[in-house]
């Protein structure tokens, strides 16, 4: 059964999965992405950090084309991102996305949130989709709340459902756009635990976050962005103990004081 993704996703570990080459984007005069060259390999967990406005969210959203880019190329598993249309929809099905504000479908139950994609996009039978949803919801610890609506759940629970919803599509890569920034502090851990689990199972992940703890424990690599550019790229150990750039030192100095 395909519901054992840890085996599938570690296949071909180490090969390039997401490749960004010379990616540029402007918002009017603002150069929000500047010559980004990044390669994320299969099974790798890459954490993107940086001050707000550094372009890290835009970078994340560009990978499934929620943001378009003006120049450069993004390929996923060797194929360039398609233009709008059916093909793009198919590509997005391969890329799981978790948003800062969860964005669970407010009018659907937790179970329906998780089964919508498999049924409508993957054309899975309802019974099979329900079974898969039950398993995924159990895995993120929400199994007993499947019949509730999103608004009846706490933020942490909603975000875990959002992760299950993305996983239900059996994505090749998971994008996390500041997944814990909208959460109350006591709920952050429950979400990070799920993400750490996922990382340990070998899921390819690109995570935009301010959670340095997660970066230290789970990341294979840290990208530090500032002013739309990737300023530093290193292992977490190296980055946190021995940052090279002034911008990184300054940034770490500010956040590690707290």
């Amino acid at each position: 059964m395909s519901a054992a993704p840890e085996e599938d996703i570690s296949a071909g570990r180490g090969e390039p999965l997401v490749v960004l080459e010379g990616v540029n984007k402007w918002f009017g005069d603002l150069h929000v992405l500047q010559d980004i060259n990044v390669t994320v390999n299969r099974g790798e967990v890459v954490v993107v950090i940086g001050p707000s406005g550094s372009g890290k969210s835009t970078l994340c959203r560009a990978i499934n084309r929620l943001e378009t880019i003006d120049r450069g190329a993004i390929t996923l598993d060797g194929k360039p991102l398609p233009q709008e249309g059916k093909e793009l929809a198919n590509l997005r099905a391969e890329v799981g996305m978790v948003f800062q504000s969860f964005n669970l479908f407010a009018h659907k139950t937790i179970r329906e949130n998780v089964t919508l994609g498999p049924i409508k996009v993957r054309k899975m039978s309802k019974a099979k989709a329900d079974a898969k949803a039950a398993e995924l919801l159990d895995r993120v610890g929400i199994g007993h709340q499947a019949d509730k609506y999103p608004a009846q759940l706490s933020g942490g629970q909603q975000q875990r459902v959002a992760i299950a919803r993305a996983l239900a599509m059996e994505p090749k890569v998971m994008l996390f756009d500041e997944p814990t920034s909208a959460l109350d502090p006591e709920m952050i851990k429950e979400v990070l635990d799920v993400m750490v689990d996922l990382a340990e199972q070998g899921m390819t992940m690109i995570v935009v976050t301010h959670e340095m703890g997660f970066a230290r424990t789970a990341a294979d690599r840290v990208l530090f962005m500032a002013d739309g550019a990737v300023v530093e790229e290193n292992t977490p150990e190296e980055f946190f103990t021995n940052p090279q750039s002034e911008r990184a030192k300054d940034f770490l100095g500010k956040i590690l004081k707290h």
């Binding site: 929809a89 198919n90 099905a93 996305m97 409508k120 919803r165 599509m169």
Partner: peptide
Amino acid sequence: PLGQAEAARAIGLPFGGVMSQV
């Protein structure tokens, strides 16, 4: 909210599906 459409697109629904389902 715009996020609803984005989330729907992110799971691979085409325009028609985004509109009719979400």
